[in-house]
């Protein structure tokens, strides 16, 4: 990180100033023992081996006078000097955090869980670098994953990648009862401010969409590419316009017409396909399969009945 001081450069720079910067830099990176500081100073030619240790103590005092809060190196700190606070903090304002939050909000629905995890890491990193408690709290609060355990998310992502079968304890939405489920993990999806595990229930032999909040724990994992056939819901429909929606990655525009698009969507199950089709409102007409077309017509009739009353 720092280069060795050359004797010829010494009239251009302040040697003691360099010691202060090196010490500050070392402590900003990690807590240090007295010996580590001394050895680095000697290595960088900014202290001679025969010099008194008092030089380092004075340098520490200098940083403290400048507003650095540095602990004593004792048994409590594992004999390391710890920099608790310094006046060179990243001074992010609340207004800037509010803007970052606003922009992130626009982005979060269109990125993968992996990217959301990366954002989570970035926001935490920034938060750790500011000292203003309110700004720090706001930064910690931006991430859509703030209430999730990142380690567990990573494990589930891995399960999906490897198509592991996981046994979970699941809290049913309708009751306080918990049930055990054996699920082939397929995809982890962030949608409408929630995270869902798309999977296939091995025992019920049906596709399931599980709200991650309701997964109490993963009891066990069976590793590796399980050979379970998982039916998806494939729908062909005509759209006059995407309206406020935009094509999802699982939707393909088969043909473009003057008055709209012929689209084929492959959805995790009928429930998700229904939700998607209904959200298009009058822009959409389901063409195939016939039974799904009938299902949508039936739902629309029931909905019209509500407003017709």
């Amino acid at each position: 990180m720092f280069k060795t001081a050359e004797k010829t450069d010494l009239n251009q720079i302040s040697l003691t100033g360099m010691r202060a910067l090196v010490l500050l830099g070392m402590l900003m990176k990690a807590p240090r023992t007295f010996e580590e500081i001394r050895n680095t100073f000697i290595e960088l030619n900014i202290m001679e081996p025969e010099h008194s240790d008092d030089i380092i103590r004075i340098d520490l005092n200098t940083l403290r006078t400048m507003g650095c809060d540095i602990t004593k190196a004792n048994s409590k700190t594992n004999y390391r000097y710890v920099l608790l606070k310094h006046p060179f903090e990243l001074n992010i304002t609340k207004e800037e955090v509010a803007l970052v939050k606003k922009v992130y909000k626009r982005l979060k629905d269109n990125v993968s869980i992996e990217t959301l995890i990366e954002f989570d890491t970035l926001f935490n990193k920034l938060a750790e670098y500011v000292f203003d408690k309110e700004v720090q709290e706001s930064l910690y609060g931006i991430s859509a994953l703030k209430e999730f355990k990142i380690k567990e998310l990573r494990e589930l992502l891995d399960d999906c990648r490897k198509n592991n079968i996981i046994t979970i304890l699941y809290q049913k939405p309708s009751s306080k009862e918990q049930s055990r489920k054996e699920v082939l993990a397929q995809e982890l999806v962030y949608k409408n401010d929630k995270i869902y595990l798309y999977g296939y229930d091995i025992n019920k032999k049906e596709s399931v969409t599980l709200n991650l909040r309701r997964i109490i724990s993963v009891i066990s994992r069976t590793f590796g590419g399980q050979d379970v056939s998982t039916p998806a819901c494939r729908v062909k429909f005509f759209l006059t316009s995407f309206g406020i929606n935009k094509p999802e990655k699982n939707e393909v525009i088969l043909e473009k017409h003057d008055n709209g698009y012929l689209v084929e969507g492959v959805y995790h199950n009928d429930f998700i396909a229904c939700q998607r089709i209904l959200s298009f409102g009058s822009h959409c007409t389901v063409l195939e399969p016939e039974n799904f077309r009938e299902l949508i017509i039936e739902k629309l009739k029931q909905m019209r009945e509500i407003y017709n009353a």
Partner: peptide
């Protein structure tokens, strides 16, 4: 006392 000693040039660099 040593605890009150500080390096003026260092402080100026930091400032």
């Amino acid at each position: 006392k040593l605890s009150s000693k500080k390096n003026i040039a260092s402080m100026q660099v930091l400032k």
